[in-house]
Simulated scan of single mutants.
Amino acid sequence: MSFIPIKEATIGRYIFRTLSSVTIRRSRKEIAATAEITLPAEYDGKYLCNEIKGGDEVVIALGYDDRKTEEFRGYVVDVAQRRPVVIQCEDETYRLKRMSPKARSWSSVKLKEIIAYVLPDAKTHDLPDVTLSPFQIKPGGSVFDVLEKLVKTYGLQAFFKDKTLHVTVPYYDMNDGTVRYDLERNVIRPDLTFRREGDVRIHVRAVSILRNNKKLTADVGDSDASAITTLHFYNVTTVAELKRLAEDRLKTMKYGGFSGTLLTFGVPYAEPGMAAEIRDRRFSGNRFGRYMIDAVTTTSGTGGFRREVEIGRALKKQNAQ
């Protein structure tokens, strides 16, 4: 195999196999997955800025030689009127921003009920058993606004994968498979920091949202940490219990091991929700561990087919020296 990168985009009724560049961004921490496609200004004798419009469906496939994988599916958001043409795209969140649910208020409601109310036909995955009290959908808002409120006010994570909506608590392990990285073999550039467990400083502020919409707070961890990490809990009614839950969560956050990003080729495939198994053979006994993948930025252009993989918390104890 010669490993020649290929990139293909279907936009509306057109199929493009000569893209100038593609950038795709997916993250567990962001509701929307986005894509940017750069194309020549003219195609088949037509100006593309007149042929492509907002709302056109988009499918992007990338790969090497004759093997390609669908990397993005969504809709055109904007077409830049310039040379070359730059097309901004979003996944299913494009539609959600244009859907307006009827205003409604609940004194107490399960997360599953809210999602069923605003998206009755949506495919969902493992929605946590969370009670929100109270919750209000205001007039004139969109379904996207509801998801954004769940993220910003209640500390949840919301994102789409294969048109399936995931709404999860942070640090939830999705068990979406494992991608293996050997820093000496299949990584172009590791931008990683290795920390021993005793060197990690984390200050956690736990916030419990009560049924009357009041809040309890408790701080645990290292007061000298450079930043404060906020964790949300629901209907925990005592500070003592809130501290206990926060300290349990802190144990999963305060790990020794790697943090940072990896720049790799297009293969192996990676996406948020997968586990990154990282090995560094340069050290006696090997530095090895499994980490949650939080975000992946995929690019294909003059610099080749690349993925920048952002790793999150450790998924099991490190065997570091």
Rank of each mutant, 00 (worst) to 15 (best):
K316N: 15
V267T: 15
W106A: 01
D176E: 14
D44K: 10
S208V: 07
R13T: 13
T93W: 03
L262P: 05
R205F: 05
S100N: 15
R211F: 10
T217R: 12
L156A: 00
D91Y: 07
A275E: 06
V86H: 11
G285E: 09
G54N: 11
I228L: 12
R249P: 09
R195M: 10
F16M: 01
P190V: 07
R307F: 06
K317A: 15
G74C: 03
L127K: 00
F160H: 00
D78L: 13
A227S: 15
V220P: 06
Y14P: 04
Y154G: 00
T164N: 04
Q157E: 07
A61H: 10
E92F: 11
D126L: 03
S100R: 10
I31S: 00
F72Q: 03
V236C: 09
R195G: 06
K254N: 03
A275T: 08
G54V: 10
G256T: 09
P190W: 04
H166Y: 09
S105W: 09
F305G: 05
I202S: 07
S100Y: 13
D162R: 10
K138E: 07
T238R: 02
Q321A: 15
A314F: 11
E8R: 12
S2F: 14
G141S: 11
G303I: 11
L62A: 02
G155I: 01
Q81N: 14
L231M: 13
G74E: 07
E310H: 12
R189H: 12
K161T: 04
S133G: 02
V86D: 10
Q88A: 14
L242V: 09
P40D: 07
K251T: 09
L231D: 11
R244N: 13
S284V: 13
A240V: 12
N319G: 15
R26C: 05
A35N: 02
Q318S: 15
T230S: 10
R201E: 13
R95M: 15
T131C: 07
A225C: 12
K68A: 10
S107C: 10
T164R: 09
I311A: 06
Y75D: 04
K163G: 12
H166A: 00
T297G: 08
D44A: 12
G301P: 04
Q88S: 14
G63A: 05
I37G: 01
F16D: 06
G140V: 01
P120G: 03
